[in-house]
Design a protein around this nucleic acid. Sequence first.
DNA 1: GCATTATTCTACTAATTAGTTGAATAGTTG
DNA 2: CAACTATTCAACTAATTAGTAGAATAATGC
Lengths: 110, 110
Amino acid sequence: MARKRMTPEMMALVAQRFRALAEPARLQMMQVLRGGEQTVGELVEATGLATANVSKHLQLLHGAGFVTRRKEGLYVYYGIAGEDVFRLCDIMCGRLAQESATRRKVLAGR
Amino acid sequence: MARKRMTPEMMALVAQRFRALAEPARLQMMQVLRGGEQTVGELVEATGLATANVSKHLQLLHGAGFVTRRKEGLYVYYGIAGEDVFRLCDIMCGRLAQESATRRKVLAGR
DNA sequence: GCATTATTCTACTAATTAGTTGAATAGTTG
DNA sequence: CAACTATTCAACTAATTAGTAGAATAATGC
């Protein structure tokens, strides 16, 4: 499954999703959200980013389906939509770790 | 593992890797490479992209560790570096499929 | 209604980068 | 070495988007 030819439209969508994660600020926010739902204001405080900026990143992440949105009175709570996001990050981290290990080996003379 | 706090530097690296996959042209090239090693010229033919453009994308992918590079005489062969790249794509595709299924359900009136 | 707080919207600037063109480099063959 | 082919480099243009500032909207309490 998902093994056969991908249509250009599908590929564009996949690329768009990867792009949503291709930003340190958004990864940082996702990491904060890993601790549980947060309001925009809490995310602002946790990340040190400007409010409007956080809001914009959240909309992008929500549009890409990576975060959930729940309005409660005056506050809007955002949360992680599906744990597989972290599988993505873990694979990337694994690749990086493997690379730096190889690099160390090379530097060590073989 | 890879569960604890990520440093900003680490996050920047991860973001950079995601960005390398955040381009339909590069995903297309990766898909072609799935069929086995290809020269730059073969990739140009397979994708319809301009030579210099393909070369540039390949350098970016190689810099991000997603493709291998092997020079043989006049030709340079590029290949996939590690199958886990496709796990990344499969997770993304899975998410997309799940979403469009949900969307269908919603449109169906519930 | 009015004041207050949380979030989003709009318009702008600055930075990044995909794609193109033409020149430069590296390897091959005669 | 000269002619040829494959790939890469350098410089440029156009498009995308992160970040910011200020106005606008939405919900709450007086």
